[in-house]
Amino acid sequence: MKRGIGWLTSGALVASLGLVSAQAQAQTDEVVEQIELGLELYQEEEYGAAITELEFAINDIRQLMSGRIAETFPEAPEGWSAGAVESAGGGGGAAAMFGAGGSMLEREYLQESGSGRLTAKLMIDNPMIQVMSAMFNNPAMIAAQPNMERIRIGRDSALLKWEPERGNAEVSFLMDGRILMQVNGQGLESQAPAVELLEAWDLDAVREQAAR
C-alpha cells in the first residue's frame, strides 16, 4: 500500500528523531536568551517589551513540552503503519501547544493488509476531559451507553465502546483527572487492536512529561 509523506520507515524515523533533538537543543538555547532578555528589559522598566519576550519564551517551552509528549505515542503494532504525531484538528505537527485551554495530539495507524484504521489521541487540560471524567466515575452513566463497558488497563479502569456491526471501537483512559488518552478504530474485526494499542502506550512517560 502506498503511503504519503506522513508515514515513516524506521530509518526515516531515526533520522527524524535526530533532527528533532537538534532542533530542541537550539530551541532551548533560544528560550534561555529570551528569558534573559526579558529580565534585562524588566530591570530597565521596559515592561511591554519584557512581556513580549517572556511570552515568546513560554510559547517555545510549550512547543518543547508537546514534542516530548509526542514521543510517548506507541509505535505501530505488527502489520500496521504509523503516521507522524500531529495537532488534532490539523496543522502544527507535534509542536501543538498545551496552553490554558488545553490541546490535543493525535497519531494515525493504518492496517497494511486490511482496511483497519486507528487514531490515538492525547488530551491534557482540555475542557472535554471534564465531560469524560463524569462518566468514568458514574457506573449508571456507563451502563446507559449502548455497547459500552468498563475494562482494565493494568490495575486501572478504562472505557470501551465496541460496535461489531460497524467495526468501530473507542477505548478511553483517564489519568490523574486531567490527561485523557483515547484510541478510536474503524474497519476492525474486533476491539483487540484498539485496546492493545492503548495498553502499549507508555503511561509513566506521559505522566512525567505532562507534569505541572
Rank of each mutant, 00 (worst) to 15 (best):
M97H: 03
Q34M: 12
L197K: 00
K2I: 06
M148D: 10
L13N: 05
E108A: 08
A24N: 11
S115C: 06
A88H: 08
S190W: 04
P164Y: 07
G101L: 07
W162P: 09
G67D: 00
Q191S: 14
R166Y: 10
E165C: 00
L110Q: 04
I124G: 01
G38C: 05
Y42I: 11
L188W: 06
E40L: 09
K121G: 01
M148A: 15
E163T: 14
A211F: 05
A57V: 13
V32K: 08
A82N: 02
G116R: 01
S113R: 14
G116M: 05
A49M: 05
S115Q: 12
A24L: 02
P77T: 03
M123E: 09
I69R: 00
I35R: 02
K161L: 14
D204G: 07
A84D: 12
S103K: 02
R62Q: 15
P139F: 14
L37V: 03
R150G: 01
I142G: 01
W201G: 03
P74W: 05
L41R: 13
T9W: 06
A50G: 14
R117G: 07
G92L: 05
W7E: 11
S103M: 10
D176L: 12
G90A: 10
P77L: 02
G67P: 00
S190L: 10
G91T: 12
P193Y: 03
V183K: 07
R155C: 00
W201H: 06
I69V: 12
E163M: 14
G187A: 10
Q25E: 11
A100K: 03
A12I: 03
S103V: 01
F98W: 07
Y47W: 12
E199W: 02
A70T: 03
Q43V: 01
M135K: 11
V171E: 04
E33M: 09
L203F: 12
T9Y: 05
Q209S: 05
N126M: 08
G48V: 10
W162D: 15
F73S: 01
I129H: 09
Q25P: 00
E189I: 11
E199C: 08
M148F: 02
